[in-house]
Amino acid sequence: MRRIFFFDLNLVGGGQAAASPLDQFEIVPLIPFHIGNFYFSFTNPSLFMLLTLTFFLLLLYFVTKRGGGNLVPNAWQSLVELLYDFVLNLVKEQIGGGNGKQLFFPCILVTFLFLLFCNLQGMIPYSFTVTSHFLITLSLSFSLFIGITIVGFQRHGLHFFSFLLPAGVPLPLAPFLVLLELISYCFRALSLGIRLFANMMAGHSLVKILSGFAWTMLCMNEIFYFLGALGPLFIVLALTGLELGVAILQAYVFTILICIYLNDAINLH
């Protein structure tokens, strides 16, 4: 008489399903809302974006209304002034210091601070990383890219198309170079969204995998597994610090690329 054993690879000890590292990116509708075939539910990304915006506005309010203008600035005022000066110097270096060019400074400052706070908020346990979703980062990058293109046409009119043709190109090669430059120009918005989304999603997934592995080994009853978990545990701590640096760096990279693209649209070649 044969005995048949069934094994489910999705189950671990205790009969519980193994958690996927991608579960942290799941979109959960908190307040379902439908209008016909349109879906306008308030989800967890909407909640955390609202929390980020609220924290940002409250920080600026208390700094400017309660602590602004002090001869000896407090810690919060120093932080806001540091961020302000950092983005202002970035705009001056990449675009220029003229008054007309600094009209774009508020948009760049808000973009940098929004991405910075969203990325840092995603490092808090049991929070949600808004910038780990491709649709959110792509919407932001395409919105800014369309705005930069409009600025280019406002400044130069139809002469803005000369951006697609470098100077001194032989006439027979012009159609091919124009096509290549057009494709490259359009892919700028796509690369902006993909870069931010991929770095944040990959980093958080890796931290989740290694932390789950270390926690499983720590929960083992044998001393061998407990000692073996110390290595992955230290790796998780180091990787968390690295991910914190990546969160800050990605906000900076996104902002500096926006400044470079805006400088190209204003100054052409």
Rank of each mutant, 00 (worst) to 15 (best):
T64F: 01
S41L: 10
I95S: 02
F114T: 14
N44F: 06
N10R: 11
G68E: 01
S78W: 07
F105V: 14
L83D: 02
S78F: 06
L51C: 01
P32Q: 03
T43K: 02
I136Y: 03
S127C: 13
P32D: 06
G69Q: 11
L50Y: 11
I108A: 02
S127L: 12
V87D: 00
L11P: 03
V72D: 10
F5Q: 15
L103I: 08
L90Q: 10
L90M: 12
L22V: 10
K65W: 00
N74Y: 10
Q102C: 09
G122W: 01
L83C: 02
R3Q: 13
I35W: 14
F33R: 09
I136E: 03
V87Q: 01
A17I: 05
V12S: 11
Y84I: 01
F62S: 03
N74V: 13
P106I: 08
R3A: 13
N99F: 09
F42K: 07
G15I: 08
I27E: 15
L60M: 02
N44K: 09
R3I: 10
Q24E: 09
E81S: 15
K92A: 11
S20R: 11
L135Y: 13
T54D: 06
K92S: 13
G36C: 07
F48L: 13
P73Q: 13
G100P: 06
V72S: 09
G100A: 14
Q24V: 08
E26K: 14
E26A: 15
Y126A: 12
N37L: 09
G98F: 13
G67W: 04
L30D: 08
T54S: 12
L135H: 08
L51V: 02
L82V: 14
Q121C: 06
V63E: 07
G97P: 00
I95L: 04
F114Y: 12
F62V: 05
L53Q: 05
S132Q: 03
L135P: 04
T52Q: 04
F33N: 14
P45M: 05
R3P: 05
F6A: 08
R66C: 10
R2V: 09
L90G: 15
L11R: 05
F48I: 14
L115F: 07
D23V: 14
G36T: 13
V72L: 10
L103P: 01
D23H: 15
I95R: 00
C118E: 00
E93P: 05
N70I: 05
G68P: 01
G98T: 15
L50N: 09
G68T: 02
F134M: 06
A19Y: 05
G14Q: 07
F86K: 12
S78L: 08
T131C: 06
Y61P: 00
E81L: 12
V28Q: 12
F38D: 11
F33I: 12
T52L: 06
F114P: 04
N44W: 05
K65D: 00
K101P: 01
G14R: 09
L11Y: 06
V12W: 07
Q16R: 10
V87N: 00
Y61A: 05
L53F: 06
G67D: 06
L79S: 14
F33L: 14
H34L: 11
S46E: 03
F25V: 14
F56P: 04
L116D: 03
P125L: 11
W76M: 03
P21L: 04
Q24K: 10
I4W: 06
T64I: 01
L50S: 15
A19G: 04
I35S: 13
P106S: 06
I136R: 01
A17L: 05
S78D: 09
G36H: 12
G98V: 09
C107V: 14
